[in-house]
C-alpha cells in the first residue's frame, strides 16, 4: 500500500523515458509524420479500448456504442477549438465532460437491460447520435466539421494515454472498482452484498464515456476534419475487437491489443482491395483459436457459454 516502492519507481522511470526518447526521435525527424500518424492512432485506440474495457470487460456491460461517445468528444473539442478559438485543454476537458454527461443520460435508461439487449440498445443510441450529427448544420452535417486546429502533439497524446491508463487502473483497485467487477461477475450476489448495481453500472459507463471523449478530442485535433460517419457502428465494433483481442478485464491486454491491431491494419493497407476481407479472416481466426484474447483471464460472464444452445435459460 505504499505509494513509493521499487515497482512504482521503475514504472515511473519507464514512462518518463519512453516519453523523452520518443519525443527526441520525433523532434529530430527519425519518426516521420506517417509513423507519427500511426502512433496517434495507436494512442487513441489505447484510450478507447481501456475505457471500453472498464465498461465491458470489468463491469460486464456489453456496449456497442462506444464510438458515439468518442464522436461527442470529437465534436465538442472541434467546436470549442475551431469555432470558439479556445485552447486545447478546454477542448479536451469539454469533450470529456460532455461525453460523460451523454454517458449518464444514455446509461441510466439502457443499463437496466442485459446482455444482447443492452448491446442492441447501445448500438441504437450510437446510430441516433450519428444521425443527429448528420442532420445538424451547425457542425457541418454529413460533410463534416472542417478546419479544426491541429493541437494534438506527442506530449498531449502521451499525457492523455498515461492519465487514462493510470486513472482507470487505480479505479479498478478501489472499492468502487471492485464493486464494478463484482457486477460483471455476478450481479445478484453483488446486490446482495450491498452494491447498488444501477449506480455502479452508470458510474463505469460514465467514466468510460469520459475517457472516450478525450480520445475523440485527440482525434479531432489531429485530423483537422471529422464527420459523423467516422464514428459509426463499425468504429464501436473495432474498439470492442481490441478489447476482446487484448483480453477482457485486462488493461495490459487492451494496450497490447490496440498496438497489435493497429499494426495489423497498417500492414493491410498494402492490399487495399482485399484489406477488409483479410481483416475479416483474421478476426474469425482469433475468435476461433484465441477467444479469451492475448491476456485472457478466466471465464468472464460475457465470456461464458451461451447457455448450451438454449434460448430461454441464457441468463442463468
Amino acid at each position: 500500500m505504499k505509494l513509493i516502492n521499487k515497482k512504482n519507481m521503475l514504472g515511473f522511470l519507464a514512462v518518463i523515458l519512453t516519453y523523452a526518447i520518443a519525443g527526441f526521435l520525433i523532434d529530430k525527424g527519425f519518426i516521420d509524420s506517417y509513423i507519427f500518424l500511426n502512433i496517434v492512432l495507436i494512442g487513441i485506440n489505447i484510450i478507447l479500448a481501456v475505457s471500453l474495457n472498464l465498461i465491458t470487460g470489468f463491469t460486464g456491460q456489453f456496449s456497442l456504442g462506444h464510438a458515439a461517445f468518442m464522436s461527442i468528444g470529437a465534436y465538442t473539442s472541434g467546436i470549442l477549438t475551431a469555432k470558439l478559438g479556445l485552447p486545447f485543454w478546454v477542448g479536451i476537458l469539454g469533450a470529456a465532460l460532455l461525453a460523460a454527461v451523454a454517458g449518464i443520460i444514455i446509461g441510466i435508461p439502457t443499463l437496466r437491460l442485459k446482455g444482447d439487449y443492452l448491446a442492441i440498445a447501445t448500438l441504437g443510441f450510437g446510430e441516433i447520435v450519428k444521425i443527429i450529427g448528420l442532420n445538424t448544420d451547425y457542425i457541418g452535417g454529413a460533410t463534416g466539421l472542417n478546419d479544426i486546429p491541429r493541437y494534438t502533439t506527442w506530449t498531449w497524446l502521451y499525457f492523455c494515454v498515461v492519465v487514462t491508463v493510470l486513472l482507470i487502473s487505480n479505479f479498478i483497485k478501489s472499492y468502487k472498482g471492485r464493486a464494478c467487477i463484482s457486477i460483471g461477475e455476478d450481479e445478484i450476489a453483488a446486490e446482495a452484498m450491498g452494491v447498488n448495481t444501477t449506480y455502479y453500472k452508470v458510474l463505469a459507463f460514465t467514466l468510460g464515456s469520459f475517457f472516450a471523449g478525450i480520445a475523440g478530442a485527440l482525434y479531432a485535433n489531429y485530423f483537422y476534419f471529422i464527420k459523423p460517419d467516422s464514428f459509426g457502428f463499425m468504429k464501436s465494433i473495432d474498439i470492442l475487437v481490441i478489447v476482446v483481442f487484448g483480453g477482457m478485464a485486462s488493461i495490459k491486454g487492451s494496450i497490447l491489443g490496440a498496438v497489435l491491431l493497429s499494426l495489423i491494419s497498417l500492414f493491410l493497407q498494402g492490399i487495399p482491395e482485399l484489406r477488409m476481407v483479410v481483416y475479416a479472416v483474421i478476426l474469425f481466426l482469433i475468435m476461433v483459436y484465441r477467444p479469451q484474447g492475448i491476456i485472457g483471464k478466466g471465464e468472464f460472464k460475457l465470456f461464458k457459454k451461451r447457455g448450451g444452445l438454449n434460448a430461454n435459460n441464457q441468463s442463468k
Binding site: M248, L274, M287, L302, F303, R306
Partner: peptide
Amino acid sequence: PIRKSTRIAALITAISVSLFLEYGMMY
C-alpha cells in the same frame, strides 16, 4: 466452431462473416 463459445466471441465472429461477405462481394 464457435457454437459453444461466448456471446462476444460469437458476435464478433458474425461480424467477421458479414465483413467477409460484403468486401468479398465488392472484390
